[in-house]
Amino acid sequence: MTDMVRTEIQGPVGIVTIDRPERRNALNLAVKQAVVQQLHTLAANDAVAAVVLTGAGGYFVAGTDIAEMAGMRPMDHVRLATDEVFHVVRGNRKPVIAAVEGYALGGGCELALACDLIVAAEDACFGQPEIKVGIMPGAGGTQRLLRSAGRYKTALWALTGAMIPAEDAYAANMVSQLVPKGQALARALQIGEQIAAMPPLAVQGIREVLRQGADVPLETALALERRVFERLFDSEDQKEGMQAFLEKRKPSYRGR
C-alpha cells in the first residue's frame, strides 16, 4: 500500500505524493487508504504546520480506478467507505494544498477540491467526466464545484464531462494560483512555508470560518467570523503578534 503513496517532510511542510504511474495515479482503495493513513500521521506531527498533496510522474490524479469500481454495488461504497479520503482531506487539522500537474479528473478533481488551496500548472486539466461512464460525481464534484465556479459553469462541466483547462479553472475560482509547468509543487511548498510562519490559532480560525461560513446566510457567517475573531484575543499569539509589531521585531508564535 505505501509503495503507491509516499510521504516526506521538508521543514514545516509534509508532502504526500501519490505514485501509481501505470494508471496515472488513479485512486483505488489501497491508494485512498494509504493517503488517509499518511494524512493522519502528518496531522499528529506537531512539527508539521501544512501539508502538500501531489502526484508523481507529471500527473495529479487521473481519476478513480474504473476497473475496481465497475462491479461495485451501493452497499460496497458504504462498507468500504470509498469517500473517506475526501472527508479526511477536508477535515484535516493542518491546511492541505493541492499541487496539480497534468490531469486532475473525476476523483482526482474532487480530491483537489477538498483541499484548502489549489496550485496548478498552466497546462493542467481538471474535469468531472463521470457522466461519460454512466454515473455522476459522488465525492464533492458537483457541490464543491458549485460553491466555487457557480451553477452554470458546474452544469456545463458536469453534464458534458468536458475537460477544464487550468486557465478556465482559475478564471472560475477553482484554482488559487497558476504557475509554469513543473512548478506546482515548488510553489505549493512556498505557500505551505508561508502558512507555517503564521500563528497556528489564527490559521485554524480562518479555516473554520471559511468552511462553515460558505454554507450559511451572510449574517450568520459574519457572526461566526466575529466570534472567532474575538476568541483569538484570549491567545498568547495575539499578544505576541501585536507586541512584535509595535517593537518592530519578528514574532515567535507558539499556538496558544
Rank of each mutant, 00 (worst) to 15 (best):
Q38I: 00
M242Q: 13
E247N: 10
Q183V: 06
A44Q: 13
T41W: 05
D234M: 14
A70N: 13
D237V: 07
L117N: 05
E84P: 05
G127Q: 08
A62K: 03
W157V: 14
R187T: 05
W157S: 09
V175N: 03
Q38L: 07
V78Y: 14
R73K: 15
P217F: 14
H87M: 06
R144N: 09
P199Q: 06
T160S: 11
A81E: 11
P251K: 07
T17V: 03
A47R: 15
D83W: 14
G192A: 04
C115K: 00
C125V: 15
V35Q: 07
A67D: 13
R249T: 05
A214K: 10
V35L: 14
E247I: 04
A56H: 07
N28F: 15
M136A: 14
Y253Q: 09
Y103F: 15
N92H: 09
L42H: 02
A47I: 07
P217Y: 14
V52S: 04
A139N: 06
E236G: 15
F229P: 00
G138F: 09
G107N: 04
A49M: 09
Q183T: 02
A99K: 01
G141A: 12
V13Q: 02
M136T: 15
A158Q: 05
V31M: 02
G91C: 09
A169T: 12
M242R: 13
I191L: 12
A121I: 01
H77N: 07
D76A: 13
L111G: 00
V5N: 00
K132D: 08
R227I: 14
A155N: 10
F60M: 03
D234R: 15
V119M: 03
M75G: 05
G255E: 06
G57S: 07
L111Q: 01
A43M: 11
Q143R: 11
G71M: 04
P12L: 03
K250M: 09
A186M: 12
R90C: 09
A244Q: 09
A169P: 04
T54V: 08
V175W: 02
P129F: 07
D19R: 14
G205S: 14
M163S: 11
P251L: 06
A166L: 03
Q143S: 10
V89N: 03
E240R: 12
Y253R: 06
A214D: 11
K250T: 13
G58M: 08
A166V: 00
L27Y: 11
A112E: 03
T41K: 15
R144Y: 08
V31N: 01
A124G: 05
R23E: 10
L222T: 10
L42K: 00
Q10D: 12
K32C: 15
M4G: 10
A50K: 12
A99H: 03
N173W: 13
I9L: 06
A81M: 13
G127E: 07
A169E: 04
K181T: 11
R93H: 10
K94G: 02
A114W: 03
K132W: 11
I97V: 06
Y152Q: 13
L80H: 09
A56R: 05
L105C: 07
P217G: 10
M198N: 11
R256P: 05
I15Q: 00
A99S: 01
M1A: 15
I118R: 06
L185P: 01
V36T: 11
